[in-house]
């Protein structure tokens, strides 16, 4: 545990607050279901896609190009996961095998 118990609980509180806000906000803002809320509705439709793009990059923030071990395992595993998912479309299989491949690469091949 890199953080103290209190710090961990505060992080948990911040995450809970963030989640609760996104879930309750529409019900608090829009008491009248039928009215037009164009910007919020528009962001509700588009932001989810942009957010996943952001998260993919976020996961790769540690990648470096100074040595092959800094980026090649990521590149191979992402290509593998993507192709497997395009081919089979099985979420659990793609995540499971992709992670195993990455673990093998960083533990055995690119040590």
């Amino acid at each position: 545990m890199p953080l103290t118990t209190t710090q961990t609980l505060i992080i948990m509180g911040a995450m809970t607050l963030g989640t609760v806000i996104t879930r309750f906000l529409p019900f608090i803002l829009f008491r009248t279901p039928k009215s037009e809320h164009s910007v919020i509705t528009y962001l509700g439709q588009t932001l989810p896609y942009a957010a996943i793009g952001l998260l993919v990059v976020y996961c790769l923030k540690g990648v470096t190009f100074t040595a092959t071990s800094g980026w090649v395992p990521e590149a191979i595993s992402i290509a593998f996961t993507t192709l497997l998912h395009v081919w089979k479309g099985n979420t659990l299989l793609s995540i499971g095998l992709g992670t195993v491949l990455y673990m093998v690469l960083v533990q055995v091949v690119f040590v």
Binding site: G18, T19, T22, R23, F24, L25, P26, F27, F30, H37, I40, T41, L43, G44, Q45, L47, P48, A51
Partner: peptide
Amino acid sequence: NARHLFYGI
């Protein structure tokens, strides 16, 4: 979790 806004709506 911004996508939840959409679910809520």
